[in-house]
Amino acid sequence: MADTQQKPTATTPPPKQGQRSWIAEFYGSALGKKYAMAITGIVLLAYVVVHMIGNLKLYQGPEEINAYAEWLRQIAYPALPEEGGLWIFRVVLGGSVLIHIHAAYALWLDNRRKRPAKYEKRDYVAVNFANRTMRWTGIIIALFIIFHVADLTLGATNPDFDHADVYGNIVASFSDPLIAGIYIVANLALGFHIFHGAWSLFQTMGWNNRRFNHWRRYLAVALAVVVVVGNVSFPLAVLTGVVS
């Protein structure tokens, strides 16, 4: 316990300037990693919201959502090759996910080092379920992204997968209660992750104004609820036969 605590030795070297690029230098600090997490978090959050809204076309029927999927492949066509725009999004999003995870992992390691001994008794006052479970909901989401891409982009779970028939693929997948269950659980995890993340990013970015601070909570709740309700409604709609 306490005997594992050590006196930090270093007399600090002065911050090295101009040797590494400033962005590497910035990312090298913990606050810089937090910024990276906040910025990639904003990118991913924006994507998640747009993704959910786009998928609402499921309720308009097969033609609408299949046409929407086709349009996604044609973004910026013919300036870019077919699916070119889509690939730019994929690279940016994938990169954001990787940076987000790397920063989170590095900070987690460092924080463990900085709090080596546990209290025998600890009575938390301010923490909530969402922020205590960020790393677990994060892991669930990361695994879910892999599953989701395999399921509805690559068609690994569906022998009759047809790239042109997004509607049919969704109905086929969500008709399996197990798959639908995975989507529901993962989106609940996502909701908690957004609930803390969307609030937290304002602190990290330094967007703080006492007149508007209470709105940050409302916004986080609204985003979490909108995303979860929208996304969970899809598997439920298929399971209950509203969409078939």
């Binding site: 270093a10 460092d110 924080n111 900085k114 006052v125 301010a126 923490v127 922020n131 803390h196 937290s200």
Partner: peptide, 11 residues
């Protein structure tokens, strides 16, 4: 150098 990083718990 000495201390951990903030996860906005508010504790």
């Amino acid at each position: 150098e000495y201390f951990g990083s903030c996860t906005n718990y508010g504790e």
